[in-house]
Amino acid sequence: MRKKTSPAEGPEGFVYQCRLSLSSATVNMVADLIRGHLRKIGSRWRKLTPGKIAVIVLAILRHDQRLCDMAGGNDVSASTVRRWLLEVVGLLAARAPRLDRALRKITRKGGVVVLLDGTLVRTRRRTGDENRPNYSGKHKVHGLLFLALTDEKGNLVWISAAKPGRSSEITAARHNKICAKLREAGLGALADLGFVGLDDDPDDPVIVTGRRASRGHPLTKAQKEANRLVSRERAANEHGFADLKNWRILTKVRMNTRHATTLLRALLVLTNAEVSR
């Protein structure tokens, strides 16, 4: 996209400008992925260069730009921009790490603990029985549940497949066999009270959570202090989710769990390329 340095004149010359708050390294990474894909499929040309396609797709993901707006500003159709978007999202999602590989990478770097938490990505409410499982009684909204692991500094290392919003975090963790994967990698995890009871081996736990008070059994001072220590160490996990949700396309997710999983994993790769603590 050509940079405009002078104001537009005339009723047909209005220009909408938006600053893409991403590093050039991220744009170049996406452009290189597109070039490699074009060589692989034997495509001889595209309407725009891989660099411009990368900028258009990143603008949609980062700022939630409308497809028709990006298409009209670059003399292409909205269906072409949609095809580019799906193509790039698929290429990025294929680079997202698997759980076992992500944990082994942390072990090789000398890490001993990861941070485990879940987040709800809100979806636009639709009518019909198919959207009822997406209603979260905890958050009182419709959405999709994702689990994520971050390192001690808050860098995202893995994100799970999407689950309906009514699912619980502990059920999703059991489905992904997180305890077994952590033991294989020789790592421990810190989690919030939503994961109490997840670890099935209390004698040799790999997941440390706070203590939950019950009726007639309030927490002691030592238990409250332990909860504060766990919460303080887990604070970095919220930074990882905040970095992920900076991609404004997540503000209007309206898709099934399979496509939402592909989108979130693509954004995970872009977040790791953009943020390094």
Rank of each mutant, 00 (worst) to 15 (best):
L244P: 10
V88D: 00
A173Q: 01
D204K: 03
G194F: 03
G197P: 03
N246C: 13
L263T: 13
V89N: 00
R124E: 14
A8N: 05
N246A: 14
R166N: 13
I159R: 13
L263E: 12
T150A: 01
H37L: 10
D129Q: 13
A94V: 02
Y16D: 03
L91M: 08
A213Q: 14
Y135W: 12
A242F: 10
T262V: 15
N227A: 01
N134P: 06
L48S: 09
I41E: 06
D199P: 09
D200A: 00
T119R: 07
E184F: 06
L156E: 14
V157T: 12
R212D: 05
E274T: 15
D201R: 13
L103F: 10
N246K: 13
T5W: 15
S276R: 11
W158M: 12
A222N: 04
T150L: 00
L116Q: 02
V196C: 11
E130R: 11
M255W: 04
L263P: 15
G143S: 11
L116V: 05
L120P: 04
D129Y: 13
A71G: 05
N28L: 10
K47L: 08
S6W: 15
A236K: 11
P50T: 04
A273G: 15
D200T: 04
K138F: 09
N28V: 05
D129S: 15
A180E: 07
T261D: 11
M29L: 15
K252R: 14
